[in-house]
Design a protein around this nucleic acid. Structure first.
Length: 939
RNA sequence: GCGGAUAUGGCGAAAUUGGUAGACGUGCCAGACUUAGGAUCUGGUGCCGCAAGGCGUGUGGGUUCGAGUCCCUCUAUCCGCACCA
């Protein structure tokens, strides 16, 4: 083998790995376990671009490194293969999504293999495979058959709830969820109920439950979307408008786990920004619920007389009870259930009109427009439960129906939104703290100062006042301290074909879970992938699709995140037919030690997966506390788009430098025929027929220069760089090294192919250390010199540190330095080069395997355990140059033996005529010696 | 508006965590070898300056013998949430 030929080497070793099943992980091993997981991809038709493998390369480096350190590493890969694009494609072409998906996966596997990843492909899972989604459905049934007991603070089988009902009726049940949805009954009444009635009573307690829910309805996609699939009022996929709609939906009661999901964040090693996003998403707030009785007639309100209200009451939620004396009016959400009842005849028209106007405004308008103040007076008054003062009741759309109680007490002096509202509608603003200032300009939410105009709490500070007020309200049954969460239950149904069927059937209008023995409930074949004429989901088209031949199935399918919420567990034991994961396998692999993936899943997948894990734990099905111990977010690699400028109304294109002289339209030019922003005009002309006759106005040097913009990599922007062409040109090892070299893993960065020649020449130089004469391997058995050992061990130490810190970019620099040093030393010694191959092997595995084979060693025969024995002693420099400074200003270099102590150095500097040489006659006040670094003499 | 992150040469970046800023790679300049090649090798390259020297890590201040690093101020860019009471 004369020269370094990556393509031959890589093909050879990839075939070898596949054949030998080199990376198969064992479920029982004396070695310690380590689980490295990549977020599995959705197999899109476009294949991989250079951005996709970034995280996979990093995790593969860790995997190979951990194996060298003697760990039994689980490093699997699979496919999140249910999803919209395959279905959209099916609607357009009639091709079964299963076929599209299978073909895309084949292409993905091919591309991933070409990069030399060390996945254990024997564990591959596909979420769309019935043998996999059988267990997704099984977990759903577990959720369906569970409720959340707040007394034990965990999920329990629905059976324990029924037992409680039989003993005491609904009395004393402390369950997560909305009590408003549930009915009260006695044990006797329960006993009288028939099956249908019992199931109806139980249903609102289930962790998977059906309910009329406001959903994000996307007509363009014909389905509902979760909040994290909606961006700025448009669907994330497709960019179709999304509106709020009340529909019966399957929901998962993730809110039951809000507090545990929050607490758990403190126990896991995740990037702080992601944890913070989850905290905000859960949105815990500590406050109080306060009851405002509605005054029965307005004459009382006008006279300000105290009224004993036996009528309706309005519950508000506030985080600032202390400001209650400043609550000069109430505001209800327009959807609030009491609005109709409260509205006086005189105000009827105004209220009706306002509600209609609110409905007309789409969610998107409401978001875009938070400045406009709007609202309407109901004509009714409530009584401030602390001051006894009457307060008018308004409705306004700045109050959200879905948060807290859907009603707020407005304190214009303390809350800016209330202040704006009060100012606009000329409602009173009452100062309640001596520290509040500028109330004619804006609200002042300060917690400083002492309260005024606040009877009970006048003169008190924030903490005392809050405590006293809550005690006062609780005593009278008018309020209590309350914790609220922003987190909503997760909508679980999609009106789509290409997803897991929800294993529910309906008997006499009541929902039943499909028996476990009948799973998987296989996705039926249908003629077309569209909704039915009657507006039912596509599954409504399935012929003769009935449970036990007679009961209708649920027609919606599960959302994309269902299958991805537990796939990491299935990898542990992917072929188990008796259990979602075998107990021993789960016990052995535990949780994921390192999870690599994008930050875009912060509040979606990463939250749902944690939720499912906690639920499974409650049922005793898994043993850990959190699924993903350490999380690393790789940054996205962005595309570098090139533009040509067409002069409007012509077929003439003008170069970047002269485009300002014309009216132009920028058009994407395919980056594949642009080199260093210079357009290959011939290639461009051939690109599309319409350009064949195009004319060009060039720069003065005769080139056509394109404009540049950094955008997401995408087919439609013609800025996709495929790994395939780079691999065929430079090799997978070069691409792996280069992607790591590009910059810090976590950072977002534009792709730029230019620098890849640097790592390419590193690999060639590395090869040449072993083949200096362009022939067979030529390494010597001479003993290494200290200089060579130093070069080696500096590299080993640095690279080990780097991998522990996930700072792979600096490792590549370290390799280059080592190779340059050893080349300069003409070192071709086995003693140095063998360990160097081990060090490089996680980064450039193919090259390492080849050299290993040539050196006559089996891969892995050199264990990293052999590093430490000769590590530190060679790291010590013989002598060290110290910059010596006077008052921080460097004057001279002194050389000291590496073993010199701080005292030696200080003495030597003082004994020299150092100070005199630089005109400092005075004695030194202080000498600061930083060992190995520098000396500073203070005079 | 709230929360979070980032800011260093022409470009990607490094800096042992408070100790000679710019390693390494690109790009550029010069040279070598070459039957001009997107090959290889050598040297140079933060900015200003012929030089001595001066100035330099987004802005302004502070702590320190010494600050890219710590503290305060401001600015810009990016991300997340967005009337959450």
């Amino acid at each position: 083998m004369p020269a370094y030929r990556p393509e031959e080497i890589e093909k050879k070793w990839q075939a070898h790995w596949k054949e030998q099943q080199t990376f198969k992980a064992d479920n029982a091993s004396a070695k310690p376990k380590y689980y490295v997981l990549d977020m599995f991809p959705y197999p899109s038709g476009a294949g991989l671009h250079v951005g996709h493998p970034l995280g996979y390369i990093a995790s593969d480096i860790v995997t190979r490194y951990k194996r060298l350190q003697g760990f039994n590493v689980l490093h699997p890969m699979g496919f999140d293969s249910f999803g919209l694009p395959a279905e959209q494609y099916a609607i357009q072409t009639g091709q079964h999504p299963e076929k599209t998906t299978r073909e895309n996966i084949a292409r993905y596997i091919e591309q991933l293999s070409a990069l030399g990843f060390s996945y254990d492909w024997s564990r591959e899972v596909r979420t769309s495979d019935p043998s996999y989604y059988k267990w997704t459905q099984w977990i759903f049934l577990k959720l369906f058959n569970s409720w959340y007991n707040l007394d034990t603070n965990r999920a329990e089988p629905i059976k324990t709830l029924m037992d409680k009902f039989a003993d005491n009726g609904s009395q004393g049940i402390n369950a997560a969820g909305d009590p408003e949805e549930r009915h009260e009954f006695t044990a006797g009444q329960w006993g009288m109920m028939n099956e249908k009635q019992k199931l109806a009573a139980v249903h609102p307690y289930r962790l998977a439950y059906q309910q009329d829910t406001y959903v994000n309805w996307c007509a363009g996609l014909g389905t509902v979307l979760s909040n994290d699939e909606v961006k700025d009022g448009l669907s994330e996929r497709g960019g179709f408008p999304v509106e709020r709609r009340l529909m019966p939906q399957w929901n998962l009661r993730i809110t039951a786990y809000a507090d545990r999901l929050l607490q758990g964040l403190d126990t896991i090693d995740w990037p702080e920004p992601i944890k913070e996003m989850q905290r905000n998403w859960i949105g815990k707030s500590i406050g109080a619920e306060v009851t405002f009785p509605v005054l029965s007639d307005d004459s009382a309100a006008i006279s300000g007389e105290e009224t004993t209200a036996a009528g309706p009451v309005i519950k508000v939620y506030t985080t600032r009870v202390d400001t209650i004396y400043g609550a000069t009016f109430l505001v209800l959400a327009p959807e609030h259930e009491l609005v109709a009842q409260l509205t006086t005849p005189e105000q009827q028209e105004a209220i009706t009109e306002y509600i209609a106007a609110t409905k007309r405004r789409s969610e998107r308008d409401r978001m875009a427009d938070t400045k406009t103040v709007s609202g309407a007076f109901t004509g009714a008054y409530a009584q401030n439960p602390v001051s006894g003062q009457p307060v008018p009741i308004w409705i306004a759309d700045y109050v959200l129906a879905g948060y807290g109680t859907g009603a707020v007490m407005a304190v214009p002096s303390g809350d800016q939104r209330d202040w704006v509202f009060a100012t606009h509608f000329n409602l009173p603003i009452l100062q309640i703290s001596d520290a509040q200032q500028g109330l004619d300009q804006q609200a002042d939410p300060t917690k400083e100062g002492r309260y005024i105009n606040s009877d009970l709490i006048n003169g008190l500070g924030y903490a005392d006042a809050t405590e006293k007020l809550i005690a006062f309200l609780e005593e009278r049954g008018l309020g209590r301290g309350k914790v609220n969460y922003r987190l909503r239950d997760a909508i679980f149904g999609r009106q789509r074909y290409w997803g897991e069927p929800i294993p529910i059937y309906y008997k006499d209008g009541t929902a039943y879970g499909v028996a476990e023995a009948d799973l998987p409930l296989v996705l039926p074949e249908i003629d077309e992938y569209k909704p039915t004429e009657t507006g039912e989901p596509p599954l409504g088209r399935a012929k003769d699709w009935k449970y036990k031949g007679q009961y209708d199935y649920e027609l919606s399918t599960m959302p994309g995140w269902a299958g991805s919420s537990w796939y990491y567990l299935r990898y542990m034991d992917p072929t188990n037919e008796a259990r979602f994961v075998g107990e021993e396998a789960e016990q052995y692999w535990g949780n994921v030690d390192l999870y690599m993936g994008g930050a875009e899943h912060a509040t979606g997948h990463l939250l749902y997966a944690r939720f499912w894990y906690l639920f499974l734990k409650d049922l005793g099905l898994v043993n850990g506390n959190e699924p993903f111990q350490k999380l690393i977010n790789q940054g996205m690699i962005l595309g570098r788009s090139n533009f040509v400028y067409r002069i409007n109304g012509t077929n003439k294109f003008v170069t970047l430098g002269k485009k300002d002289q014309y009216e132009t339209t920028a058009l994407h030019a395919d980056v594949n025929f642009v080199d260093n922003d210079v357009l290959d005009i011939e290639a461009f002309k051939k690109w599309r027929d319409e350009y064949a006759t195009a004319e060009f106005i060039l720069e003065d040097n005769g080139t056509y220069v394109c404009g540049v913009e950094i955008e997401k990599m995408s087919k439609s922007k013609y800025n996709v760089v495929s790994p395939d062409t780079l691999i065929s040109r430079y090799g997978a090892d070069a691409l792996r090294l280069y992607e790591m070299f590009l910059g810090p893993l976590e950072q977002f960065k534009p792709w730029n192919t230019n620098g890849i020649t640097g790592v390419g020449s590193f690999l060639k130089k590395f090869w040449r250390l072993f083949h200096p004469e362009d022939g067979a391997l030529a390494v010597t058995d001479e003993p290494a010199t200290p200089a060579e050992l130093k070069a080696l061990h500096k590299a080993i130490r640095k690279v080990q540190e780097d991998i522990e810190k996930f700072s792979f970019n600096t490792s590549v620099s370290t390799f280059m330095i080592a190779v340059n040093e050893l080349t300069a030393l003409s070192c071709h010694k086995r003693a140095i080069l063998e360990p160097l191959v081990v060090l490089v092997s996680p980064y450039a595995p193919h090259l390492a395997e080849e050299l290993w084979a040539e050196l006559g060693n089996q891969p892995g025969s050199i264990s990293s355990a052999s590093y430490p024995e000769f590590r530190e002693e060679y790291l010590v420099e013989d002598s060290v140059n110290y910059p010596v400074a006077i008052n921080g200003k460097v004057r001279e270099q002194f050389q000291f033996a590496a073993t010199a102590t701080a005292a030696d150095i200080e003495a030597a500097v003082l004994a020299s005529d150092f100070l005199a040489r630089f005109g400092e006659g005075k004695a030194a006040k202080k000498v600061i010696v930083v060992p190995g670094r520098m000396v500073n003499v203070v005079v």
